[in-house]
Write a protein that binds this DNA or RNA. Structure first.
Lengths: 355, 355
DNA sequence: CTGAAAGCGCTTACAG
DNA sequence: CTGAAAGCGCTTACAG
């Protein structure tokens, strides 16, 4: 009974197998696994050897049950997975794996009925996650639900989205980027910079607010921004309009894909980029380097972002709350920067200024 | 002792709370949860009500432990997440949620040392997943390891990648697509179609083999394909070369992003697309509609693909093996199709054929 | 149809 | 330092 040489190869070894092989109690193995304290080095060694020989891996399930704290980080995001989110997930996965944790990616369909979303959230939470990351919580209801259901001692980190007072929340450099890009365009000699905004709530810290600030600083009247949708066709239409408007020589577009759509619209009315009109995007989506012309844009390191969220969770779990809940937090300051490519240039010879 | 009115709001209710409230045994609640058989309708109702009132959700952890089968599907993919994989994940998530299952997305870094990957795999498997999906197993070692460690009764579905005999494996329509695109280009009047291949093993059923077949069918000598890397810069260089070669009027490129790189190279030597050279891509990446000119390409429904993988797993779990392990499987035949856009046209007036 | 009991694999006080 | 025991929340034979 309990011979270590079973033939049925697939039943994976449990902690009791290890204990038996090492000749110690289950408790000791557990201690070894968790911190290694209070153990004779002799026992330590034999346990280590047993684990080694058996190729033992603790059951995440059992641990989670016993601990009421599983070794998993729940990552929630909308199913549309806009650019940036994927990189963020990658950053989360990498950081989690390094810390020996798993990631549970949960995508909720923002169109879906709330009940279904709520079910998913509750099931996920029944997993006793170590911590929770919510990416770009644009869909308020789902975010609310998660926040409501999460146990009080489970750290939650929001990434992007509207500011939610009282929550630990990471922000991208949207405002800073919008400001920098606009400044750059002005420095090229443009009299004014127009803006095509991504569909988002007009909050204080956005690409749009950065653009606005840069203009106001120079005393330039702020033209009404165009509001794009996520549909590229709309972007084309906007480009088509912009191309026919007078005095437009520089446009800062809220993201790279929309910028490409705008360029198509411009092209359709015979405007050249950057000879006639300069275009700048945002994000540094890999495609920004592939368009003709390639796009000047603002790069952000979303992987670093995801990694940062994991770090915050781990810190909290370990008791050190590096960030106050009520203070938004910008991460990785050296990871964001202007990337100048082919789509921006000085304005066409500036005769005829309307001064 | 056991009053249902605890104030501490966050401790979520367990099956015993439900049993107590409903006035039945835990076993009965469990039966209700699992199939609803052998229960008086009276009991059923009171259990239902109790679940309702308590907002009870079974613990995935405990279920997984007790069942040696958790309600989770493990999805493995390389961390680079090439286009298509993200859509596939989405399809997997949707289908899983509909079936009441969770998805555990695990990204392994193909550069990483094998030990680390192996650890991650074993931890994931310790979760007793319902089934396993491995996306594009390009990194053989990781795939081998998963296959080795997976319990025999856990269904594994491979998505794409090199054919692994004996495994249940889903394939995209690469061969068919390559064939169709090449045929289309020939039908436009081009004498020959060149090919820029994505970096992949040259197996039987690829975009490249489809291209080859189409050419051979017409008795056209097959020119040596260019082999691209995943680096767009290389694609530009290839475009630059192609633009200077004689007699090149049509190029089928193995994926949309690389096609955009090729177009940049062509543009840099003054070749116009499609007036001088027709370009076709592959995948119907959203960016294919945004380039100037927009790309003719071959669309595949990767979401359907992911959903198909889930369906296969669920079928197996339920005992009905719809697909034989030793037969590769193409899914969703009506989901793949040629998409004609602006980048393809008849060849420039065909005087001077080298016949 | 239904309940008491054992077990899934671990952790955590509790006694040595 | 170390082990026996109870418990985490569920499921599954086993007896009614």
């Amino acid at each position: 009974m309990g011979e270590p040489m079973d033939i049925g190869k697939k039943k994976s070894p449990s902690i009791s197998d290890v204990a038996a092989l090492a000749g110690v109690s289950i408790s000791s193995v557990s201690r070894y696994l968790n911190n290694g304290e209070h153990l004779t080095s002799g026992k330590k060694q034999s346990i280590a050897r047993a684990i080694q020989m058996l190729d033992y891996h603790p059951s995440i399930l059992a641990r989670g049950l016993a601990n009421s704290r599983s070794n998993t980080i729940a990552f929630f995001a909308g199913r549309d997975l806009l650019y940036g989110v994927v990189d963020c997930i990658r950053g989360v996965e990498d950081a989690a794996i390094k810390a020996g944790a798993m990631v549970n990616v949960v995508l909720f369909d923002e169109q879906q009925n709330f009940d279904s979303i709520s079910q998913t959230i509750k099931s996920t939470l029944s997993t006793n996650p170590l911590g929770i990351i919510i990416n770009q919580p644009r869909y308020g209801a789902a975010c609310d639900e998660i926040l409501r259901d999460a146990p009080e001692d489970t750290p939650v980190v929001l990434v992007g989205g509207n500011r939610r007072p009282g929550q630990c929340q990471l922000f991208t450099h949207d405002d800073e980027g919008g400001y920098a890009i606009t400044k750059y365009l002005l420095s090229l000699g443009h009299q004014v910079v127009h803006h095509v905004a991504v569909p988002e709530n007009d909050e204080a810290q956005t690409r749009q607010s950065g653009w606005r600030k840069a203009l106001e600083e120079e005393g330039i009247p702020v033209p009404p921004p165009y509001i794009a949708s996520w549909d590229p066709k709309d972007a084309e239409k906007i480009g088509w309009e912009l191309g026919q408007e007078d005095g437009v020589t520089a446009v800062f577009v809220g993201n790279d894909e929309i910028a490409m759509g705008v360029m198509r619209g411009l092209h359709s009315v015979g405007k050249r980029v950057p000879e006639d009109i300069s275009i700048a995007g945002f994000d540094d989506n890999p495609i920004a380097g592939l368009s003709i012309p390639s796009l000047t844009t603002w790069r952000q390191d979303f992987e670093l972002f995801g990694a940062g969220a994991v770090k915050l969770i781990l810190n909290r779990v370990n008791g050190s709350a590096e960030v106050e809940n009520d203070a938004p937090y910008n991460i990785g300051d050296n990871s964001a920067q202007l990337v100048v490519r082919e789509s921006t240039a000085p304005p066409p010879s500036s005769h005829g200024s309307m001064k």
